[in-house]
Design a protein around this nucleic acid. Structure first.
Lengths: 134, 134
DNA sequence: GCCATGATGAAAATCATTCGCAAGTAGGAA
DNA sequence: TTCCTACTTGCGAATGATTTTCATCATGGC
């Protein structure tokens, strides 16, 4: 059984057809869809889902930490399921493709920099923008 | 004479009263103002400056690299004069205050991670969000 | 099965930002 | 200096993403 569904059931939020469709669309996504794209995908499962419901759902999922919201600079927020292993993103400026990466040294450095400044790190955002070599 | 004015004159864009006011407001700012705040400040110098002009000007300044645009997650883009020494930001989640920092190891790591993934780093965004220790 | 509390769809409302346009002006050319 | 034209401006309307309103509907504990 999916992790996301299990986590969702722990939030106390009601399970409804639109929400099931949105959760399913999210689990089926391998990319980082924005709300409108997610709406398209959810409608394939349940054609009655409204845009507003997707926006409401994404906000709720984000508040409960089940989903992460990103702004990759193109005007629409994009989402991905939260995972145990944190990763950051590199955006290919030529294709818009998003590459995920995970780097221990970087994680450690973030914590250490925050501490040096007198802060406890609560959240962070690292995005690299680049072009393919050659 | 200000660096910003000098750099602006090299862009080929015309110098007008509204633009001079916006540039001055920017130079007088020690924080990371958003477009509307900048509009307020520019109006103190030249009360006729319109919002649209501020937005147009900020877009132009960004395109010429004289200014950096940030999204610290509060819905409005915020700006700061570009500087020779690059720095990143740590946002105090309790006060909203923005602390600038510069870390050699972090800069090097960003380049190295991008290269390892087969990319040439063109731009990046690092934001740490934290709460003061104690 | 009942019903209070949540959830939903549709459309209107917000908010930051951009655009259209008619009128004004910087600044190189003559 | 004066002219002329392309660049700018202010204003208000337009946009586009996201949020809210509201009347109606449905979940899930009892």
């Amino acid at each position: 059984m999916s992790d996301l569904i299990r986590k969702y059931s722990k939030t106390g939020l009601r399970m409804t057809a639109p929400r099931r469709a949105i959760l399913q669309a999210l689990m089926d996504s391998e990319d980082h869809p924005d709300a409108l794209t997610l709406h398209e995908r959810a409608k394939e499962i349940d054609p009655t889902v409204a845009q507003a419901t997707v926006y409401r759902m994404m906000r709720a999922l984000e508040e409960f930490g089940l989903v992460e919201k990103h702004d990759f600079g193109n005007g629409r927020a994009r989402y991905e399921e939260s995972e145990k292993v944190k990763h950051d993103h590199l955006i290919d400026l030529e294709t818009g493709e998003i590459i995920e990466f995970q780097d221990e040294a970087l994680e450690a450095l973030k914590v250490s920099i925050a501490k040096k400044l007198g802060f406890e790190l609560r959240d962070h955002k690292v995005e690299l923008y680049g072009v393919p070599i050659e």
